[in-house]
Design a protein around this nucleic acid. Structure first.
Length: 494
RNA sequence: GGCGGCAUAGCCAAGUGGUAAGGCAGAGGUCUGCAAAACCUCCACUCCCCAGUUCGAAUCUGGGUGCCGCCUCCA
């Protein structure tokens, strides 16, 4: 089995191979840091994190680089609004980016280049493009001459003569930038500074880089001229990634990326979640709400849809994901809750529960089915079905142990099953650890036994109201009573 | 106007020629003083519509309908 990935460039699934054996160079288009991240961002970074994790699990070393766009009109506007500076706005939103995205168990990139750290590389590429006549300076700006790049449009599958300038309704016809362009689809590589804006010296006058050029420069500087995988939101295909290709490939005469992967949008009521529509929910809004879902439920919500399809965000879908997560979590916690009871001897070891130290059978049906799904263009919904089957089975075993005190299933088989679940879940970035706080909180065992005794007495006296009151009180403290045949009552936490 | 995508149960969602995974929600049963939990069982003769190809189609072809994304803010 080999991993196949849908390549936007070729519009089909292709077997994945890396340029260098065992090493994947991967670049992910990051955020423009002018505000908090919303669920659209969350989806994108969860999805690419999952691809990265799967590649790692498949034996690759992954050099994963993700940028921050820290120079941009929106950041400048934000700084102006609040009377601060671009740098302050950018730094603050980078801090909140990490706070939010790490909660979702997204691994840190190997490097996080910032556009402002690569001004000289940006200028070098622009110079090279001007020398080769791919770009021209005009009134302090520099524009890329798209008509000179023959394959312009190859990524997004469009031709210059088919495109309608301004069809998106976002171009201001009064914008002087438009008048300096020789052709409507030419785009800015360098923008002349307006008064009061941060600017860098350049051969074309003081100014700042255009949006697309930074990624070309950062990829070249951090990963080289050709990389294996370039990822980003589907809304970046055109013009952003199309323009990256035009710039980089004209400058280096090398292919920029072998695989272009794009994730589908998060929708609200059938429409794309976006800042301009105002229909966005930030990650922290969602996770800090009174009835907030577990961050892992958000991850599950994202992974329960295929990454290229639209994903509708509703209260119901989040609630459903939360319930689904509870099911998976019970399976993931099986080893912690029941391992000791069925004779596993290492439950107190430091390494217990560490996915990295677990050896699982690579030939098991579960692993095979998981790989089959993931190899097919990261079919995470199909892969998740495997996890649910494992988790539900373990949950049933756990409940049997709770109720019967033992199980007929071989503890070593359960061990394999649990470890398989933990390992595969971790490949998807889904992890659950026992809540240490729960274990030694609240009533001690003697007090619970005492209350159970009182309840037994009440039951015997047919004082069921009192019996139910005691049961409810305990339940409120996280103690669940289980009445068993023969008048015996057992209890457990959670 | 151009390019692309999607349409499967109450909801979400896999499945690209061989007779519909999985999740959520729901129903019945066992147990119980009643519950809860648990366990067992059930929950799409059918995949937007029409026509065609085929022994056989959710899957292929043609036509139609509806929804969405992009066409220089965008994850």
């Amino acid at each position: 089995m080999t991993l196949t990935l849908y390549n936007t460039l070729t519009r089909r699934k292709q077997p994945f191979t890396s340029l260098e054996p065992g090493l994947v160079k991967m670049y992910c288009c990051g955020v423009t840091v002018y505000d908090y991240c919303h669920l659209g961002h969350a989806r994108s970074y969860i999805v690419w994190d999952t691809v990265r994790r799967y590649l790692m699990w498949s034996g690759y070393q992954v050099r994963y680089v993700q940028n921050f766009t820290d120079i941009d009109d929106k950041i400048l506007n934000r700084a102006r609004e609040e009377g601060s500076t671009m740098e302050i706005v950018a730094d603050r939103n980078i801090v909140t980016y990490f706070e939010d995205i790490r909660r979702l168990n997204v691994l840190d990139a190997v490097e996080y280049p910032r556009a402002t750290e690569h001004i000289s590389e940006i200028q070098q590429i622009i110079k090279s493009l001007i020398e080769q006549d791919y770009a021209y300076a005009a009134g302090g700006d520099v524009y890329y001459r798209v008509q000179r790049f023959p394959s312009y449009g190859k990524l997004s599958g469009r031709h210059l003569d088919q495109m309608q300038a301004g069809a998106s309704g976002r171009v201001d016809p009064e914008d002087p930038e438009g008048n300096r362009k020789q052709y409507p689809f030419d785009f800015a590589l360098w923008k002349a500074a307006k008064p009061g804006e941060p600017a860098w010296d350049s051969p074309w006058g003081p100014g700042r880089p255009g949006w697309h050029i930074e990624c070309s420069a950062m990829i070249r500087a951090r990963l080289g001229e050709t990389i294996d995988i370039h990822t980003g939101g589907g809304d970046l295909v055109f013009p952003h990634h199309e323009n990256e290709i035009a710039q980089s490939e004209a400058a280096t005469h090398r292919v920029l990326a072998n695989f272009w992967l794009h994730n589908g949008m998060v929708n609200v009521g059938g429409e794309k979640m976006s800042k301009s529509l105002g229909n966005f929910t930030t990650i922290r809004q969602l996770l800090d709400a009174p009835q907030a879902p577990d961050p892992m439920a958000i991850r599950l919500f994202v992974l329960q849809a295929h990454y290229r399809k639209p994903l509708d965000f509703t209260d119901e879908s989040i609630a459903s994901a939360q319930n689904s997560w509870e099911t998976l979590k019970e399976g993931l916690l099986f080893g912690y809750k029941y391992g000791g009871a069925i004779g596993w001897t290492d439950t107190e070891d430091q390494s217990f529960g560490q996915a990295d130290s677990m050896r699982i059978s690579p030939d098991s049906e579960a692993v095979q089915k998981f790989k089959e799904g993931m190899d097919d263009d990261i079919n995470s919904p199909a892969a998740l079905a495997v996890l649910f089957e494992l988790a539900k089975d373990l949950r049933r075993e756990g409940n049997i142990i709770t109720h019967e005190g033992k199980t007929a299933t071989d503890p070593q088989d359960l061990r394999q099953q649990w470890q398989t679940l933990v390992v595969l879940a971790q490949v998807l970035g889904l992890e659950a650890k026992p809540d240490a706080a729960d274990a030694d909180q609240g009533l001690d065992d003697a007090a619970i036994q005492d209350l159970i005794g009182q309840r037994q007495a009440a039951k015997k006296a047919k004082n069921f109201a009192e019996a139910d009151r005691i049961r409810e009180d305990l339940k409120a403290q996280g103690i669940v009573l289980v009445d068993k045949p023969g008048g015996v009552t057992e209890w457990h936490r959670g």
